[in-house]
Simulated assay, not measured.
Amino acid sequence: MTAKKQLRVTLVRSLSGRVAAHRACVAGLGLRRMHHSVVVADTPENRGMINKVSYMLAVEEA
């Protein structure tokens, strides 16, 4: 059985003054505030959201 790949995503820049679609991507990833980290599955959907707001995130393999 293979283990699912996971990513640790951390919000490192503020949501203040950001485009609504970018705020929605951050919320969709489950991030709530600055320096909050979540572990998400490495799926194409999550990768798309991460790529869209990559300038606000720090990403590492979990």
Rank of each mutant, 00 (worst) to 15 (best):
S16K: 15
L31Q: 00
R33M: 02
G48P: 05
Y55F: 15
H22K: 12
A3H: 12
E45F: 15
T2C: 15
I50M: 01
R23C: 11
A58P: 05
L31R: 00
C25R: 03
K5D: 10
A27S: 14
D42G: 01
K5H: 11
L11H: 03
S37L: 00
R32M: 09
A27E: 12
A3G: 09
K52I: 01
H36D: 06
T10Q: 10
G48K: 09
A3W: 09
S37W: 07
H22L: 11
T43A: 00
R47V: 06
T43G: 00
M1G: 14
T2H: 15
R47I: 13
M56C: 12
D42W: 01
N46L: 06
R23P: 02
T10D: 07
A21T: 13
A41H: 15
Q6I: 00
S37R: 04
T2N: 15
L11S: 00
E61C: 00
G28D: 07
R8Q: 13
K52R: 11
Y55L: 13
R18V: 08
R18F: 06
M49Y: 12
A24E: 10
V38F: 04
V12P: 08
G30W: 00
V53Q: 02
K5G: 02
Q6L: 07
C25S: 13
S14A: 07
N51R: 11
L15T: 12
L57V: 02
V40R: 02
H35V: 03
M49F: 05
M34Q: 08
L15S: 14
R13L: 08
M49V: 00
A41V: 11
K52P: 01
V12R: 09
E60L: 07
R47S: 07
M1F: 10
A3R: 12
M34A: 01
M49C: 00
M49A: 08
E60G: 04
K52W: 04
R33H: 12
R13N: 08
V12H: 01
E45Y: 15
A21F: 13
A62E: 11
C25L: 05
L11Q: 12
R32A: 09
E45K: 11
A21D: 15
H22I: 06
P44C: 03
R13H: 10
A3Y: 14
I50D: 01
H22V: 04
A58R: 11
S54R: 12
M56T: 04
V26F: 08
I50G: 02
G48T: 02
E45P: 06
G48A: 14
R33W: 06
R23L: 02
P44K: 06
P44R: 03
R8H: 12
R18A: 04
V19K: 15
